[in-house]
Each structure stands twice: as C-alpha cells, then as structure tokens.
Amino acid sequence: MKYMLIMRSDDAAVEAFKDIPFEEVIERMGRYNESLIDAGVMAGGEGLTDASEGVVVDFSSQPPVVTDGPYGETKELFNGFWILQVSSKEEAIEWASRCPLGPGSKLEVRRVTELEDFPQDNEWIQKEAQWIADAEAAKKAESAKKGD
C-alpha cells in the first residue's frame, strides 16, 4: 500500500527554517530521503516553491475568486509531499516521525487510493484508467522521438 506524507508548515516554521543554513536543510532532508531509498520504501515525492509564487482559486463564491498567495487567513502552507510504499499505516507513521522537521511543521499521513477503492463499473473510473494508459503512451512516444 502507498501512503502520502503531506508536509504543512505555518509561517513561524517557515521563518525558523530561514535561520538554518540552506546547506544544512538540504543535507538533513537528503539524509532522510536516502534512508527512505535505502529501506526500499520511497515511491516518489516533490517539493513546492514558495507560496508567494502561488495563487488560490477560492470556490466560496461563484464564479470562484482567484487571489495571489500567500493567503491571508491560512495558518498552514502545503509545501511538499512524499509517497511511500509500505506494509502498514504504522510503518508510514514511523517513517513520518523521522522526518527532520521542527515546531510548526506537520506531516499528514494519508493512504493513496487504489483502483480497488472505486466501483469498477463506473464510466469515469474506466476513463481514468484509460488516461493513465494514454499518458504513458505519450511519454513513450516522446522518449522514442528523442531516440532513447
């Protein structure tokens, strides 16, 4: 089963991180990621750029309102995620607890849905399966063009 570790930090945590030399942050996170790879559980992950570069599309009103980030009342910012392939929820939690984060940061641990979680006779579920296949086809055609 796959779990997503969703990283959220509040403003204080983001500010605190700015006091630590960038190399140190990179090294700590690098070691953590290496431990995930070495254990054979890392299935993927991405970090996000600063929230000030982002925008928010708010559906509280119609049509939705688009505002530049960072966003006024928001207490926590979402800034990255990992996907781990593990054997239990506890294992995912255990890995999450080892992440080198400090006060004001949180990791939310959520199971990634699998096709089995949805009714298989639904038209949209079947379409989605097809999209995945099409995306792979496009990727393959792209790499064939590059000649690898």
Binding site: A39, S87, S88, E90, E91, I93, E94, W95
Partner: peptide, 10 residues
C-alpha cells in the same frame, strides 16, 4: 504493539 512492529520492520 503495532508501533513496535512498525519500528521492528524498519
């Protein structure tokens, strides 16, 4: 005990 099992596995 579930937590111990997870630690043990890792």
């Amino acid at each position: 005990s579930r937590r111990v099992a997870a630690v043990w596995r890792i």
